[in-house]
Write a protein that binds this DNA or RNA. Structure first.
Lengths: 337, 337
DNA sequence: CTGTTAGCGCATTCAG
DNA sequence: CTGAATGCGCTAACAG
């Protein structure tokens, strides 16, 4: 535990200067003679000195930390590939700008409560909120405590007055639906994601946009979550319609994979009998047979963009509360549609 | 930024007591009258007071933080399902014991350097090291700086003198190889993981154990990493042997999936012509066709066990430097073998 | 049970 | 350019 608690005074002593000078040296400050600097450097070297984090944070008024909070349901896998990539992107730009990113998991009432406390105790300088659940208690935390934060998802902009970065879900789903239509698939079933998710809702809207008059509310299945079984259940549920439809547009890749698997099991050929599209372009898209035609999104860019926006805020640049930026998506044509 | 910096003094003032009393109250200490407690509680409520983290850490000598450091190559996906589950497990037990777990990503020279500094600055009370790369610079950090740490992987126990928790890789691979043998598959190709990985090496040993005399060093392919392409490359590389072998034992599921895909492409039937086994029991095992027979490991338990071990150390319970615990694995029989 | 005091390790005035 | 002094917000003796 307490090995050799070497403090700034120790190095000052060894270097033969006052510890104020050492502090100046450490903070890259001007006004330190070369001689002093050299001796301090030496002292630090032989003492293996490293400034104490807590003390520094207390004296200055920031931590150089940014917390990437990922909020999920307890049951689901914590880190989806898209989140993993966003983490990597954010970690990179934050690191390049002198911040250390730390990831916190909020997947239970307890952990949410703990994190809420942390936030209020000024644990970090800023927060990146990655929410994949319908629980907004954490979001509210930031509401009244005015901490710098950026969200990963567009929500009801009224309810959540802080900046967000999201993909153009609506436009993306519209585009791939039009792609289906152009291929002559007009009798489309839509498998929607969970209702609490803004992304889910926006993707459904995109589908409607493309379908226009052809949109049939009866041909929409509402999944409970974003997982594979949702797609399987949907196909089972609509088995009586399977002979009259020629395509299924899914809210995400997981669901599409579930749908394809179930379709295969029931003897339908994809895409010959029924074409299927996904959304996300996850690694799974390449594993499933046939390979999934889906909407690609650059998750790393997602993280980078969120981080950059937060950096702006941290730097005092004016950013509107309701500011949001929409990232582009693209269609990846493979075999399933 | 600085909204209403409410401190312990403010609540003391409002509650009409000295701030020493407030501190006692906050630390769940005895020696606080009901009257005082009540007033303090009220004051805290209406002031929205939350103790400052840095100050508390500075005064006490711990942070109530445990860092889960995940070390990966920059290119690879940061969070594999197994890591994600381990995170969840560790997060849960750590949280239950009053610690907040934070995840740090070391995927570049820069980030590794930053994290090293953090560690030396007593950023957290303890560390969980999840290494999936051959870079041991971080591990060395803990060596000379005697911080409480637990590793996820058995290494050269000489080089790395601190406790570790790992799966029984050798026994697991031995078991599934014996399973193959029992099914009459005796002409086996082995696709090994990257050479720097202890797990990789131990799994190979397990294969050898089971094969005994039959082991043929020429029928081993060494992949560069744990990813899918490794399995594909292996099959291509050994295409001249494909008619004489009847099974492939793979170092992990990814590789097995790559092998199966390539085998399918080349017209071989799995498992009829060639049986294939994996290791990890990742979600992918269910997606691939045929479903993968593999070695199951409980990653959540992995995280939990690591956390519990660290907790022991943190609580001052004696734990040998070279202590390690091996977690059991089990065979999951599906279709590929 | 409670007020007072002295640090925790460092940053930052302010003289010099 | 540098030493000394003050405070960051809180904990932990210490008297009372």
């Amino acid at each position: 535990m307490d090995t050799t608690k070497v403090t700034i005074r120790d190095v000052a002593h060894l270097a033969g200067v006052s510890y104020g000078t050492v502090s100046r040296y450490l903070n890259g400050n001007v006004h330190v003679s070369n001689r002093a600097a050299k001796q301090i450097a030496e002292a630090i070297e032989i003492l293996h000195y490293t400034p104490n984090n807590a003390a520094r944070s207390l004296a200055k008024h920031h931590t150089h930390l940014v917390a990437f909070i990922i909020q999920v349901e307890s049951k689901s896998t914590i880190v989806q590939p898209s989140v993993s990539n966003a983490m990597a992107g954010a970690n990179q730009v934050l690191g390049d700008n002198g911040y250390q990113m730390v990831i916190l998991i909020a997947n239970s009432e307890d952990s949410t409560k703990r994190i809420t406390k942390l936030v209020h105790s000024d644990f970090a300088d800023g927060y990146l909120l990655f929410s994949m659940s319908n629980n907004d208690s954490l979001a509210n935390t930031f509401l009244d405590s005015k901490r710098p934060a950026v969200r990963s998802e567009l929500g009801d902009s009224d309810k959540l007055p802080y900046p967000a970065v999201d993909f153009a879900n609506r436009a993306g789903q519209r585009a791939i639906t039009e792609y289906m239509l152009k291929k002559g698939r007009e009798r489309l079933l839509y498998i929607c994601g969970p209702g609490y998710s803004p992304s889910s809702i926006n993707r459904l809207k995109g589908f409607q946009d493309a379908m226009g008059e052809r949109f049939n509310p009866e041909l929409v299945y509402y999944a409970d979550d974003w997982e594979i079984p949702g797609g399987e259940l949907a196909v089972v549920e609509f088995q009586n319609h399977l002979n009259t439809i020629d395509g299924i547009v899914c809210a995400n890749d997981n669901i599409a994979v579930g749908a394809i698997n179930q379709l295969n099991r029931m003897g339908f050929r994809v895409p010959d009998d029924i074409a299927v599209t996904g959304f996300d372009d996850s690694p799974m898209a390449l594993l499933i047979n046939p390979k999934l035609t889906t909407v690609h999104q650059d998750s790393e860019l997602h993280g980078e963009t969120m981080a950059n926006l937060l950096l702006d805020i941290l730097n005092g640049n004016p950013v509107e509360d309701h500011h949001f930026t929409l990232l582009p998506t693209s269609i990846v044509e493979r075999q399933s549609a």
